[in-house]
Design a protein around this nucleic acid. Structure first.
Length: 189
DNA sequence: GTTCTAGAAC
DNA sequence: GTTCTAGAAC
């Protein structure tokens, strides 16, 4: 069988991971939590609903209960993993992998797997949709809107620090800079 | 999503 | 010469 058949294609890897007991960190009847295979920060996990969910812009109020459940499970999991670091919980507006997944990611971005401009911007522009914002917008407007063209431009735009907004010409320079910030922690004392 | 690597940028 | 990005992957 070819490796490019649908079930074996790279974009289906999350669906495969969900049914691999060795990869499951936590699960219940509604969700599964796994490690991101190429973590972009010290702590980087994914919350996946067991049932198939539409993509962000096809969500309706009927999906709110599960979205809230995923959010709460994600926050609890982050608290268990590390109480010092600041975390964000959210979805990529333009995801590469199939099967809806909520990222749980600490804001240190200290990782050798973070290698490209697109990596950086996918977590630090409007391509990263905070779970709380998604939920709020579906509650108030009944749906979530995405300007795909705007987002794909953002992914290529110049790099800037998520803490102080300083711009950098290359990713290595930005990575050298962000380690200087201690405000990736929850309390900046 | 990643790997590989050509050639642009420095 | 080295660093860095960006496009193909059959």
């Amino acid at each position: 069988m070819s490796s490019s058949t649908t079930s074996g294609h790279w974009s289906q890897a999350l669906t495969a991971a969900m049914s691999d007991p060795q990869q499951i960190l936590d699960s219940d009847d509604q969700i599964v939590i796994i490690k991101d295979k190429y973590p972009k920060a010290l702590y980087h996990f994914l919350v996946l609903p067991r049932r198939k969910m539409p993509n962000l812009r096809n969500m309706t109020k009927n999906d709110l209960d599960l979205l809230k459940y995923m959010h709460n499970k994600g926050e609890a999991f982050a608290n268990r993993a590390n109480k010092e670091l600041k975390f964000r919980f959210g979805y990529h507006a333009i995801p590469s992998m199939s099967h809806l997944h909520m990222h749980i990611i600490s804001q240190d971005f200290n990782s050798l797997c973070l290698k490209t401009v697109k990596h950086w911007n996918s977590f630090n522009t409007k391509n990263f949709v905070d779970s709380a914002d998604l939920i709020k917008e579906i509650e108030t407007k009944g749906r979530f809107e995405i300007d795909q063209e705007e987002i794909s431009l953002l992914l290529k735009k110049d790099l800037s620090c998520h803490v102080c907004k300083q711009s950098f010409s290359t990713l290595p320079k930005l990575k050298d800079h962000i380690v200087l910030h201690d405000v990736t922690r929850r309390e900046n004392k």
